[in-house]
Protein backbone atom coordinates (compact mmCIF):
# COMPACT_ATOMS: atom_id res chain seq x y z
CA UNK A 1 0.00 0.00 0.00
CA UNK A 2 1.31 3.44 -0.97
CA UNK A 3 1.55 6.16 1.53
CA UNK A 4 -1.30 8.68 1.48
CA UNK A 5 -3.59 6.22 -0.25
CA UNK A 6 -7.22 6.61 0.60
CA UNK A 7 -8.28 4.05 3.05
CA UNK A 8 -11.64 3.38 4.52
CA UNK A 9 -11.40 3.27 8.23
CA UNK A 10 -12.10 -0.19 9.43
CA UNK A 11 -15.38 -0.33 11.30
CA UNK A 12 -16.41 -3.15 13.43
CA UNK A 13 -19.44 -5.19 12.54
CA UNK A 14 -21.66 -3.58 15.15
CA UNK A 15 -21.27 -0.03 13.87
CA UNK A 16 -21.96 -1.17 10.32
CA UNK A 17 -25.10 -2.93 11.47
CA UNK A 18 -26.33 0.06 13.46
CA UNK A 19 -25.61 2.48 10.61
CA UNK A 20 -27.36 0.22 8.13
CA UNK A 21 -30.38 -0.08 10.38
CA UNK A 22 -30.53 3.69 10.84
CA UNK A 23 -30.41 4.13 7.08
CA UNK A 24 -33.26 1.72 6.54
CA UNK A 25 -35.36 3.36 9.25
CA UNK A 26 -34.67 6.77 7.72
CA UNK A 27 -35.71 5.61 4.27
CA UNK A 28 -38.91 4.06 5.59
CA UNK A 29 -39.65 7.25 7.52
CA UNK A 30 -39.11 9.34 4.42
CA UNK A 31 -41.37 7.11 2.36
CA UNK A 32 -44.06 7.25 5.05
CA UNK A 33 -43.86 11.06 5.24
CA UNK A 34 -44.14 11.37 1.48
CA UNK A 35 -47.09 8.96 1.42
CA UNK A 36 -48.94 10.80 4.18
CA UNK A 37 -48.13 14.14 2.58
CA UNK A 38 -49.39 12.99 -0.79
CA UNK A 39 -52.59 11.67 0.81
CA UNK A 40 -53.23 14.87 2.74
CA UNK A 41 -52.44 17.09 -0.22
CA UNK A 42 -54.55 15.13 -2.67
CA UNK A 43 -57.45 14.89 -0.22
CA UNK A 44 -57.18 18.62 0.42
CA UNK A 45 -57.21 19.52 -3.25
CA UNK A 46 -59.64 16.90 -4.51
CA UNK A 47 -60.30 13.30 -3.73
CA UNK A 48 -57.82 11.09 -1.87
CA UNK A 49 -55.27 9.30 -4.06
CA UNK A 50 -56.91 6.47 -5.87
CA UNK A 51 -54.63 3.83 -4.37
CA UNK A 52 -54.82 1.23 -1.62
CA UNK A 53 -58.59 1.50 -1.79
CA UNK A 54 -58.52 4.97 -0.24
CA UNK A 55 -61.11 6.15 -2.70
CA UNK A 56 -63.45 3.19 -2.62
CA UNK A 57 -66.99 3.53 -1.46
CA UNK A 58 -67.80 2.44 2.08
CA UNK A 59 -69.32 -0.91 2.99
CA UNK A 60 -73.07 -0.59 3.37
CA UNK A 61 -75.23 -2.48 5.88
CA UNK A 62 -76.88 -4.14 2.89
CA UNK A 63 -74.71 -4.72 -0.16
CA UNK A 64 -77.20 -2.98 -2.41
CA UNK A 65 -76.31 -3.52 -6.09
CA UNK A 66 -77.16 -0.50 -8.23
CA UNK A 67 -75.93 -2.58 -11.17
CA UNK A 68 -78.79 -5.07 -10.85
CA UNK A 69 -81.46 -2.42 -10.39
CA UNK A 70 -80.30 0.09 -12.99
CA UNK A 71 -78.46 -1.91 -15.63
CA UNK A 72 -80.35 -5.21 -15.49
CA UNK A 73 -83.82 -4.03 -14.50
CA UNK A 74 -83.57 -0.65 -16.20
CA UNK A 75 -85.05 1.24 -13.27
CA UNK A 76 -85.10 5.02 -13.27
CA UNK A 77 -83.02 6.87 -10.63
CA UNK A 78 -86.04 8.93 -9.68
CA UNK A 79 -88.13 5.84 -8.93
CA UNK A 80 -86.26 5.31 -5.66
CA UNK A 81 -84.71 8.75 -5.12
CA UNK A 82 -88.12 10.31 -5.35
CA UNK A 83 -87.55 13.75 -3.87
CA UNK A 84 -84.68 14.57 -6.23
CA UNK A 85 -86.91 16.53 -8.60
CA UNK A 86 -88.85 18.36 -5.91
CA UNK A 87 -86.65 18.80 -2.84
CA UNK A 88 -83.19 19.74 -1.69
CA UNK A 89 -82.27 16.19 -0.67
CA UNK A 90 -82.44 13.41 -3.23
CA UNK A 91 -83.76 11.14 -0.47
CA UNK A 92 -83.10 7.47 0.13
CA UNK A 93 -86.18 5.28 -0.27
CA UNK A 94 -87.98 3.97 2.77
CA UNK A 95 -87.79 0.26 3.42
CA UNK A 96 -91.43 0.01 2.44
CA UNK A 97 -90.63 1.05 -1.12
CA UNK A 98 -88.00 -1.71 -1.40
CA UNK A 99 -90.51 -4.17 0.02
CA UNK A 100 -93.06 -3.37 -2.67
CA UNK A 101 -90.94 -5.57 -4.92
CA UNK A 102 -88.92 -7.63 -2.49
CA UNK A 103 -91.92 -9.08 -0.74
CA UNK A 104 -91.99 -11.53 -3.60
CA UNK A 105 -88.65 -11.13 -5.36
CA UNK A 106 -85.36 -12.53 -4.15
CA UNK A 107 -86.36 -15.32 -1.79
CA UNK A 108 -83.35 -16.95 -0.19
CA UNK A 109 -80.84 -14.28 -1.09
CA UNK A 110 -78.95 -13.29 2.09
CA UNK A 111 -79.04 -9.53 1.41
CA UNK A 112 -82.77 -9.65 0.71
CA UNK A 113 -83.30 -11.52 3.94
CA UNK A 114 -81.45 -8.71 5.72
CA UNK A 115 -83.79 -6.22 4.08
CA UNK A 116 -86.84 -8.20 5.20
CA UNK A 117 -85.34 -8.29 8.67
CA UNK A 118 -85.24 -4.50 8.68
CA UNK A 119 -88.81 -4.40 7.45
CA UNK A 120 -90.11 -6.76 10.12
CA UNK A 121 -88.35 -4.95 12.94
CA UNK A 122 -89.56 -1.59 11.61
CA UNK A 123 -86.08 -0.07 11.71
CA UNK A 124 -84.65 2.18 9.03
CA UNK A 125 -81.55 1.00 7.22
CA UNK A 126 -78.53 2.89 8.50
CA UNK A 127 -76.92 3.50 5.14
CA UNK A 128 -73.44 4.99 5.19
CA UNK A 129 -73.52 8.35 3.51
CA UNK A 130 -71.20 8.61 0.49
CA UNK A 131 -71.76 12.14 -0.81
CA UNK A 132 -71.70 14.79 1.82
CA UNK A 133 -71.09 18.53 1.68
CA UNK A 134 -70.32 20.50 4.84
CA UNK A 135 -73.17 21.80 7.00
CA UNK A 136 -72.71 25.38 5.84
CA UNK A 137 -73.33 24.40 2.23
CA UNK A 138 -76.92 24.17 1.07
CA UNK A 139 -77.00 22.10 -2.06
CA UNK A 140 -80.41 21.70 -3.66
CA UNK A 141 -80.92 18.76 -5.97
CA UNK A 142 -84.18 20.07 -7.39
CA UNK A 143 -82.83 23.23 -9.01
CA UNK A 144 -79.74 21.48 -10.40
CA UNK A 145 -81.73 18.63 -11.90
CA UNK A 146 -84.21 21.08 -13.37
CA UNK A 147 -81.50 23.26 -14.90
CA UNK A 148 -79.59 20.44 -16.54
CA UNK A 149 -82.61 18.57 -17.81
CA UNK A 150 -83.91 21.79 -19.35
CA UNK A 151 -80.52 22.71 -20.78
CA UNK A 152 -79.88 19.33 -22.41
CA UNK A 153 -83.53 18.48 -22.92
CA UNK A 154 -83.20 15.13 -21.20
CA UNK A 155 -85.22 13.39 -18.47
CA UNK A 156 -84.19 14.08 -14.88
CA UNK A 157 -82.52 10.69 -14.41
CA UNK A 158 -79.95 11.47 -17.10
CA UNK A 159 -78.62 14.50 -15.28
CA UNK A 160 -77.46 12.56 -12.21
CA UNK A 161 -74.28 11.30 -13.87
CA UNK A 162 -72.97 14.85 -14.25
CA UNK A 163 -71.94 14.75 -10.60
CA UNK A 164 -72.37 11.13 -9.53
CA UNK A 165 -71.10 9.49 -12.72
CA UNK A 166 -72.69 6.24 -13.78
CA UNK A 167 -73.83 4.91 -10.42
CA UNK A 168 -75.72 2.20 -12.29
CA UNK A 169 -72.42 0.52 -13.15
CA UNK A 170 -70.96 0.76 -9.65
CA UNK A 171 -71.24 -2.39 -7.55
CA UNK A 172 -70.41 -0.19 -4.57
CA UNK A 173 -71.27 3.51 -4.72
CA UNK A 174 -68.27 5.78 -4.49
CA UNK A 175 -67.76 9.50 -4.80
CA UNK A 176 -66.25 10.44 -8.14
CA UNK A 177 -66.23 14.22 -8.15
CA UNK A 178 -64.46 16.10 -5.38
CA UNK A 179 -67.52 18.29 -4.67
CA UNK A 180 -65.22 20.90 -3.17
CA UNK A 181 -66.07 24.56 -3.56
CA UNK A 182 -63.72 24.95 -6.53
CA UNK A 183 -65.53 22.11 -8.27
CA UNK A 184 -68.91 23.77 -7.65
CA UNK A 185 -67.66 27.19 -8.73
CA UNK A 186 -66.13 25.95 -11.98
CA UNK A 187 -69.48 24.54 -12.99
CA UNK A 188 -71.40 27.59 -11.78
CA UNK A 189 -69.17 29.90 -13.84
CA UNK A 190 -69.47 27.69 -16.89
CA UNK A 191 -73.26 27.73 -16.71
CA UNK A 192 -73.62 31.33 -15.55
CA UNK A 193 -75.19 30.23 -12.32
CA UNK A 194 -74.96 32.63 -9.35
CA UNK A 195 -71.54 32.73 -7.74
CA UNK A 196 -72.59 34.92 -4.84
CA UNK A 197 -71.58 33.37 -1.49
CA UNK A 198 -75.17 33.34 -0.31
CA UNK A 199 -76.25 31.19 -3.23
CA UNK A 200 -75.06 28.23 -1.14
CA UNK A 201 -73.77 29.52 2.20
CA UNK A 202 -76.38 30.73 4.67
Amino acid sequence: MLQGDFQLPKRNKRTVLVLGLLGVVGLVGLAATVAVGAFVLSAWLGLPLNAFGLNDGPDQPIAFPHTVHVQDMGMDCTFCHRAVTTEAAASVPAVGLCMSCHKVIGDGLPEIEKLRGYHESGRAIDWVRVHRVPDHVHFVHESHVRFFSERDNVPASETCQLCHQDVGSMPKVEQVRSLKMGDCLDCHRENEAPTDCTACHY
Binding site: H136, T198, H201, Y202
Partner: peptide
Protein backbone atom coordinates in the same frame (compact mmCIF):
# COMPACT_ATOMS: atom_id res chain seq x y z
CA UNK B 1 -74.45 40.91 -1.88
CA UNK B 2 -76.20 41.91 -5.12
CA UNK B 3 -79.59 41.70 -3.41
CA UNK B 4 -78.74 44.48 -1.00
CA UNK B 5 -78.24 42.14 1.92
CA UNK B 6 -75.46 42.51 4.39
CA UNK B 7 -74.19 38.96 4.46
CA UNK B 8 -72.16 36.99 6.95
CA UNK B 9 -70.29 34.08 5.37
CA UNK B 10 -69.75 31.68 8.24
CA UNK B 11 -67.09 29.58 6.56
CA UNK B 12 -64.95 32.64 5.94
Amino acid sequence: NPEGLNVQVYNR
